[in-house]
Nucleic acid binder design. Structure first.
Lengths: 222, 222
DNA sequence: CGATCCTGACTGTTGAACAATCCGGGCTCC
DNA sequence: GGAGCCCGGATTGTTCAACAGTCAGGATCG
């Protein structure tokens, strides 16, 4: 109910990162961040440890930490792992599991958000949809891994700028996929999901490809 | 080449945990550990953060950290994730990938270790074998996740005591699986692996089951 | 104009301090 | 004698101040 200060600081910074208020490559000074979060430098360093371990921050020896800048290879990797996890989980999923409920709610939220017009809301709902898929497995470790991948991916989305219209087309696919799954055709839904992730990856690659042309930044891994 | 002190401390403690010199449930005092590792308390706390994040330590509010005590549910979960990852990776693996070389080396080491007689060596070689499988995917994230699972699993092995003979039977299965994979029958090898993991899980469950009877300890997850 | 040196800022790490909290032991009271 | 209470010591959570090492960038000098 009341996590320690380091963890709360990590949560706060993570939120800043995935919402794009901290941009990839940006350096985080221990002094200024600790002041703005009102924690001591030591405590903040514990928070940094967590985020570095999650891959959202990179540590550069004697130069502190900076927001990770995902490369194309990272995005490909994230999607590969997501497919590896989500597809078989969905195929073996039970429509009666609470995760299915989460998927349903997420689809509704996405449909509502599309009317609202803010693509960030759509993206968030989309993420919840996929979290719901993973939840079907009922595995705490899988949930953790997937949550981490989501965070990294949302960080990548920061590179999208206003290309967010990106998501609109996927809302309906989510809805169709869900309908199929709830109807008992888990394998068909899983096949849909496989194509879905393939397409998503291709589109993201294309966008990042020409957005970051000539930007041979550091990798986010390690 | 020269990680910072917190990370090195984390490595040292992790080693103590997975080699069983620190037993599940054991509490780690900040003062004594910091003295024995010759680092300051603040630095040690950063190391603790890492290990808590990895699930090897649990933090209890105002009572510091203790070595996690995996429950049956944890072991089941670990194996479920391992199967989910390793089986499809092996099925899609390329025998020419460096990971295959690692698998080969691991099998050789396991065979040698069986002659040596120390089951810990066998266990270590076995782990390397499975790391090799995951390496076939060429995914840094998957490697990290799997390394983490391995560490948690080795922690569980601590509960095995001298039941380590456990592994002997699997050495030959590894060898057979590898032969099949190298011969080009990736699907057959993957099927072998699937059964292998199923059997391993069952055996581990049985052992932990009657070893820890009446020990309703905390879960390792969160 | 270029190389060098210097200075300032920041990180990495430590030690000390202090409130808050928990645990065990002794004490009281029944 | 046993149950419950209280207190003191030990430990955690957190902060602050200090200092060496290192890096970046500007000032200086040739």
């Amino acid at each position: 109910m009341k996590p320690d200060r380091a963890e709360r600081s990590a949560d706060a910074i993570r939120e800043l990162i995935v919402t794009g208020r901290l941009t990839p490559g940006q350096r985080l000074s221990e002094q200024s961040v600790s002041e703005s979060l009102d924690v001591s430098r030591n405590t903040l360093r514990e928070a940094f440890r967590i985020l570095v371990h999650e891959g959202l921050l990179v540590r550069r020896p004697n130069a502190g930490v900076a927001v990770a800048t995902p490369t194309l290879a990272d995005i490909v990797d994230i999607y590969r792992v997501r497919r590896l996890i989500e597809v078989p989980v969905l195929a073996a999923g039970d429509p009666a599991h609470p995760g299915a409920r989460a998927m349903r709610d997420a689809v509704d939220a996405a449909l509502a958000a599309r009317l609202g017009g803010d693509w960030r809301d759509i993206a968030a709902a989309n993420m919840r949809f996929h979290s719901g898929i993973v939840a079907l497995a009922g595995s705490p470790r899988l949930d953790r891994v997937h949550a981490n991948l989501s965070a990294e991916l949302r960080l990548s989305f920061g590179l999208l700028g206003e290309n967010g219209a990106f998501f609109d087309g996927f809302v309906d696919r989510n809805a169709g996929l869900l309908r199929r799954f709830l109807a008992g055709d888990a394998d068909g839904a899983a096949a849909d999901l496989d194509r879905y992730l393939e397409d998503s990856e291709r589109m993201l690659q294309a966008i990042v490809d020409d957005a970051g042309a000539g930007d041979a930044a550091d990798t986010v891994s390690q």
